[in-house]
């Protein structure tokens, strides 16, 4: 696992049933592009997060494929429908096989 990887998400605590809400996600990650050379002149091998998925109560919201052109500390903003109270599940997949996850619950106001 790459060191110091920490996911952050911003989700409202409550919503009206059927409301569209804005979600922001940020994960601390170097996103080493595989294009850079190290001090020894050799290419630093690529090491990125290559996929990000957001789900709500098991149903998909967005599925993102990331390439090395995504900036350090990948940031996404998107909109989700909230049909009922439940739990968001956010998953990031690292090149090295690590999987980072975080969950957030939301209530219906």
């Amino acid at each position: 696992m790459a060191s110091g990887v920490k996911p952050r998400v911003k989700v409202p605590k409550t919503a009206a049933a059927g409301e569209a809400i804005t979600i922001k996600t940020l994960i601390s990650h170097k996103m080493e592009s595989g294009q850079r050379k190290g001090d020894d002149g050799n290419i630093i091998p690529r090491s990125i997060i290559n996929r990000f998925v957001a789900e709500f109560n098991g149903q998909n919201i967005i599925d993102v494929t990331l390439e090395p052109a995504i900036s350090t500390n990948p940031y996404f903003q998107f909109e989700a429908l909230v049909p009922e109270a439940g739990e968001f599940h956010f998953i990031w997949y690292d090149d090295d096989g690590s999987v980072y996850e975080t969950k957030k619950s939301i209530n219906i106001a």
């Binding site: 110091g4 920490k6 952050r8 911003k10 922001k24 940020l26 601390s28 350090t72 500390n73 940031y75």
Partner: peptide, 12 residues
């Protein structure tokens, strides 16, 4: 603060 990447370090 969520859009500010510096906050990653502040949280740490």
């Amino acid at each position: 603060d969520f859009d500010n990447p510096a906050m990653i370090f502040v949280e740490a």
